[in-house]
Design a protein around this nucleic acid. Structure first.
Lengths: 229, 229
DNA sequence: CAATTATCTTAGGCTAGCCTAAATACTTAG
DNA sequence: CTAAGTATTTAGGCTAGCCTAAGATAATTG
């Protein structure tokens, strides 16, 4: 009974998450990614990663290029899908923030769940409703439908060379508590900052719009990306 | 490694679908539902249903009351969850239709996928945005947050006793092609109809707002629920 | 009421995606 | 260049949810 093995789009939630993680970890240079790095990022055992990579590589068309012990990178098809999911993610975040008035620190987790299940129509409609935005509420840029994504030229506040004046380009979306902290300090994409690096690996900031200066720990600073103003 | 078996809310997509199906099939009288009926509705083999029912019954707290060979009905907990998912479904449908301008025949499938994954916050926000609607775009009533759902007193156009004037209360949401047809004929919740039952098991309708009368097959008529006007 | 038929359950398998433990392959220090 | 150490893969298991085939129970009917 039931010969209906609907296999229309064989991408599962789990596959999506692997592809997204590879995209994120391979960085703008598209370097190959190690199993352990993936395992850490995804919260699974390294053996599970190896297993999945073998599947991703032997899919037809393959989602990744993978050779034993040499790490993995996305194939064109895998990259296509990863960017599609990333686009979904960031559009949904923008939508939750702009249209449904979600607090910014809650948009990521919600988008993380929904991104795998929305249709092309849903994507198209929220994009239209939002006026085809180029950036999500964290300042990350939203891949275009054709899959192109301009590289952002910014650096982490944590790797700052010297002091100076900067504009916040983006903030990390993955830690809700951190994000709440940043919000409380008025730090968001577009904020102007005057930064001094203190000897104790802390960062002394003076946000233009804020009355008093503040001190950020390294962990917090690393969640903020800046460009010079 | 990894002792983190996050089991916060053990309800899976599949469980949700079983509970929803039981709710739908048991009708307003909350009669018990047979395995085969469930199997047909869910598109799975009867054996799979039996299997799942055993799991649902032995969950703690149980989701269903189930005795071998005697069908199944929802436990209070199962009913709570089923109504929650139904509320999600209908709110999402309304949202897609009202806010995202989806064509009505597409809202069901989209809602069917998303209903399992939205958070309480998402639910609350779309409900607020929509003004806490009582009915979805098909005319089905949306269960309240507390789980109460008023019974709708209507009957299917297909089981009509005699001719007369009626108001469309609701249309079935499960068949997109059918829904498209009804839309083309201008039949939607609230439409006024003058109905004549023809000898060949067809229905001759004259919609108040439509220029000419039309003829509906039994299969189409059974997707329309009416009350006298 | 017994026999046929229809419905339902049990038994045994399959795949996806995870796990642990053990083996193997790279890497690096001595 | 070898030994220790780290990274990765293989092997073997587990659960969820589906399947088919076959057995058991209930319902129908002569």
């Amino acid at each position: 009974m039931m010969a209906s093995n609907r296999q229309v789009n064989s991408n599962t939630e789990s596959v999506d998450n692997y592809l997204k993680a590879i995209l994120a970890l391979s960085g703008p240079e598209e370097q190959s990614v190690s199993s352990t790095a993936l395992a850490r990022r995804l919260g699974v055992a390294p053996a599970s990663v190896t297993n999945m990579l073998q599947k991703l590589a032997s899919a037809r068309p393959p989602n990744v290029e993978y050779e034993k012990h040499r790490g993995v990178r996305l194939s064109p098809e895998g990259k296509r899908r990863a960017l599609e999911v990333l686009r979904h993610h960031r559009l949904i975040e923008t939508f939750l923030y702009e249209i449904l008035d979600f607090p910014i620190e809650e948009v990521h987790d919600e988008a993380e769940r929904l991104e795998h299940f929305i249709s092309e129509r849903f994507e198209e409609r929220i994009a239209a409703k939002l006026g085809h935005p180029k950036f999500d509420p964290h300042g990350h840029c939203i891949p275009a439908m054709n899959g192109r994504m301009p590289k952002q030229r910014s650096k982490s506040l944590a790797n700052l060379d010297g002091d100076g004046d900067f504009v916040v380009e983006s903030v990390s979306d993955r830690d809700s508590a951190l994000l709440k902290q940043l919000k409380a300090h008025g730090i968001a994409p577009g904020s102007r900052l005057r930064v001094t690096k203190s000897p104790q690996e802390e960062f002394i900031l003076k946000a233009t719009r804020q009355p008093k200066s503040l001190r950020l720990a390294l962990s917090v600073a690393s969640a903020v990306r800046i460009r010079s103003s």
